[in-house]
């Protein structure tokens, strides 16, 4: 058994789990954060993506014990209270989801993608960077649209803030 302590969505949490417990199962079963999903066995589908220490990783390919000491953000912790994160808002506005199963992982991957490309994104880059997230419903058309829109909104937002600071 391992003692696992983490900061998840801003809260300190801990638990004692079998060493073989995957982070995704710790989140879902011990913490009840069921927004993070499992859609494959081979670390490819990306429905399990969460942020660990600021990086979007697959929580199905990491032991809870490995993550101990880390800071984690899941889909449940992305919005700022009632205010949706710009990526969440863009997915809704542009119909970037249908059944919703891949959506949390998509959104977590997309926020990371946007953060890695502060200069902005183009369609080809978005499509290439979605290699680790599989969606069966949308044909990706509106997901790509949503991410591009969110990226634009966020860079505008960032510029606005920079202006204010100046």
């Amino acid at each position: 058994m391992s003692d696992v302590s983490l900061t998840v969505n801003g809260k300190r949490v801990s638990g004692s789990v079998e060493d073989r417990t995957l982070l995704v199962h710790f989140l879902r079963e011990n913490l009840g954060l069921t927004g993070t999903h499992v859609g494959c066995d081979t670390s490819q589908c990306g429905t399990c993506v969460v942020h660990v220490d600021g990086r979007a990783v697959k929580s199905c390919t990491m032991l809870a014990a490995q993550a101990s000491g880390s800071t984690i953000v899941t889909i449940e912790g992305l919005a700022n209270g009632a205010e949706l994160h710009p990526v969440q808002a863009a997915f809704k506005e542009h119909h970037g989801l249908q059944c919703g199963f891949c959506t949390p992982g998509m959104i977590m991957a997309a926020t990371d993608m946007i953060a890695r490309h502060p200069q902005g994104l183009d369609e080809a880059t978005v499509r290439a960077e979605l290699d680790g997230n599989i969606c069966r419903c949308t044909g990706y058309h509106n997901i790509v649209k949503a991410i591009l829109a969110a990226s634009q909104a966020m860079s505008k937002g960032a510029k606005g803030k920079a202006k204010q600071a100046a």
């Binding site: 879902r28 069921t34 499992v38 949706l84 809704k92 949390p104 959104i107």
Partner: peptide
């Protein structure tokens, strides 16, 4: 019209059988 159901799916509030 943007979808009503999206709110729960984009915030991790969907409820699937495994949940």
């Amino acid at each position: 019209v943007a979808r009503k159901e999206d709110k729960r799916f984009i915030t991790g509030g969907g409820r699937y059988v495994d949940d």
